[in-house]
Amino acid sequence: MRTWFALGIVLALLASSTHRVQAQPQASYPCSVVLRATMKEIPNAQGVALITKVRKPYAESATSPVRERQSVGIYADWLPSPSVFGEYDRYEGFAQVPGEISWRFTMHPVKENTPSWFGGTPWVGKFDEISQELPLITRVEVRLSNTGTQELGPVVLQNTLQACGSS
């Protein structure tokens, strides 16, 4: 009898401490979101993130089976040189499902034929190896980065995928 009583208490404690994880609403593909500046020092800086599904072959062979992945591509414009903010030498794209997983990828400056006399440079990058569906709480960011230390700096542009919800 004591054994059953003890077992009942253990089961009751486990049941009360178990959290039911509610499924997050998922993004609809393809979608795009505007990335907005987080710093007053760069009022013109904005960007856009394209979130889409891509079908990628496993090998270069024409008969290779394909796998589906999610892709995050970013175009960011009117960005000053990263060194303006300190010990940074590039920008990186960063996508994260808060508290769960994140992905970071290098962004590259775009050489313009006729640069703006006002300043600012466009930067682009993409990452297309995301195997999980992206929930609407996913944050997409452009962040400062130091290639020597591999440390990410502050967020420069950001938004969530809330606008990617199915209508």
Rank of each mutant, 00 (worst) to 15 (best):
H108E: 15
P109Q: 09
Y91L: 10
S83N: 12
Q96I: 04
P80G: 02
S102Y: 13
F94N: 09
T106M: 10
E100Q: 14
F85H: 01
P109K: 11
D89T: 02
E87H: 14
P109Y: 07
V84I: 13
I101S: 05
V84M: 13
S83M: 08
S83E: 13
P98F: 05
L79V: 00
M107G: 02
D77Y: 11
I101M: 09
S102M: 08
V97Q: 03
P82L: 09
V110N: 05
P98G: 03
E87S: 15
E100T: 14
L79C: 06
P98C: 08
S81M: 10
P98D: 06
S83A: 15
F94K: 07
F105M: 09
E87G: 12
L79H: 01
E100K: 07
W78I: 05
E87R: 15
E100N: 10
P109L: 08
R104P: 10
P109S: 02
S81A: 15
V110C: 13
P82C: 09
Y91R: 01
V110W: 11
G99R: 03
A95Q: 13
G93E: 04
R90C: 08
P109V: 04
P82S: 09
S102E: 14
W78E: 12
E100H: 09
Q96N: 11
V84P: 00
A95E: 11
W103G: 00
S81Y: 08
R104C: 08
E87L: 08
E87C: 05
G93T: 05
G86K: 11
V97Y: 07
D89F: 07
P98Q: 09
Y91T: 01
A95R: 03
P98E: 05
V97T: 05
S83I: 07
L79Y: 07
P82H: 03
V110D: 10
T106Q: 15
M107C: 01
Q96A: 15
T106D: 12
T106C: 02
W78P: 00
P109F: 02
E87M: 11
V97E: 01
M107V: 01
P80L: 12
S102C: 07
D77F: 14
P80S: 09
T106P: 08
E92P: 00
W78N: 14
Y88N: 00
E92Q: 14
S81N: 10
V97S: 08
F85E: 06
F105T: 07
V97G: 00
H108F: 15
V110S: 11
R104H: 13
Q96G: 08
Y91W: 11
V97L: 08
R104Y: 12
I101V: 15
A95F: 12
P82W: 02
P98T: 04
